[in-house]
């Protein structure tokens, strides 16, 4: 198996008011190249700290993070690691640097010293891949939250990363903005073959992922396909995750003596599961 990121027994500690806290505690994890992985967890579960460990923004207190064979502690490759593992944050306003969209997208490649014609090409391609090309001359503050976040993603794509990590990119967006971002990510993963690691507390965003990892108190408590992970509704609720209403309904039905399949998320699948359970009863 070709792993783009290997996390080997990593602990990350920080000091808060004289107390040492392990935000990430002895985590081992491999991310397969080309995969779409969702990391779920509530605020303070350590998921954001883990994200920053992936591109060397945080350096492990113990253990190692290996990106494409390079250790993130290796200072020689500081920039190269950040180029390969691009990162998008929660607040779109605080990651756009220039007051014209295309100039903002050019910021990464410019820092890397790419030739001007090549930058132009990359900027246009990146903006097209997130569906923001027609806004290339706009000022960021005139855009909606979802549009700004797509520009932020384009800014990362323009650095031609092999992997993109997004730390709660939809938390501040309205439903329309949220679906814009999720669709963009699916497109980048499927069509551009970019490895995606999406960190979120919305379970429904994990529906189309290849793999779901659940974090709590700095540790991985579950890891598998969406279907296997979502079976355990009770546990997900216990660790403070946002369980979609479809799952909630199926779970409630099960507790009320219905025998329904609980590992589905979409409205259609849920209806089908309920219909199937009702059919069973009749037999």
């Amino acid at each position: 198996m070709d792993n783009i990121i290997e996390i080997k027994n990593v602990t990350y500690k920080y000091t808060d008011e004289d107390k040492t806290v392990a935000a990430v505690n002895r985590v081992s994890l491999n991310i397969e190249r080309g995969s779409f992985t969702v990391i779920l967890g509530h605020n303070g579960s350590g998921k954001s700290t883990l994200a920053k460990l992936l591109n060397g923004l945080n350096k492990p207190t113990e253990g190692e993070v290996i990106v494409d064979g390079i250790n993130t502690k290796d200072e020689k490759y500081e920039l190269e690691i950040k180029r390969r593992v691009g990162m998008v944050f929660q607040n779109p306003d605080n990651q756009l640097i220039a007051s014209v969209v295309e100039e903002d997208v050019a910021f990464g490649p410019e820092n890397l010293g790419i030739e001007p014609q090549e930058i132009r090409k990359r900027v246009d391609d990146a903006l097209k891949s997130v569906g923001m090309y027609e806004f290339r001359k706009s000022a960021p503050h005139k855009l909606s939250g979802g549009q700004k976040q797509r520009v932020a993603i384009a800014g990362i794509i323009a650095m031609t990363p092999s992997c993109i990590v997004l730390d709660e990119p939809t938390a501040m967006l309205d439903p329309k903005g949220r679906s814009e971002i999720i669709n963009t990510l699916i497109h980048l993963n499927k069509d551009k073959k970019i490895t995606v690691i999406l960190i979120t507390h919305y379970m429904e965003e994990a529906e189309t992922a290849d793999r779901v990892i659940v974090m709590n108190d700095g540790e991985i408590i579950d890891d598998g396909t969406p279907k296997t992970v979502f079976k355990n509704v009770k546990r997900l609720k216990e660790v403070g995750l946002d369980v979609p209403q479809t799952t909630e309904l199926l779970y409630a039905l099960n507790q009320n003596g219905f025998k329904v399949d609980t590992n589905v998320i979409s409205v259609e699948d849920t209806a089908a599961a309920i219909a199937a359970a009702l059919e069973d009863k009749k037999d």
Binding site: Q245, T246, E248, L249, A252, V267, T270, A271, I274, A275
Partner: peptide, 25 residues
């Protein structure tokens, strides 16, 4: 609401359910 959408889908499948259902309970 999602629950209402699920019920609409079940009704479409010919199951005899009320339309005015908006909460899980």
């Amino acid at each position: 609401p999602i629950v209402t959408r699920i019920f609409a889908e079940l009704i479409r499948r010919g199951i005899n359910l009320p339309e005015n259902v908006f909460t899980v309970e």
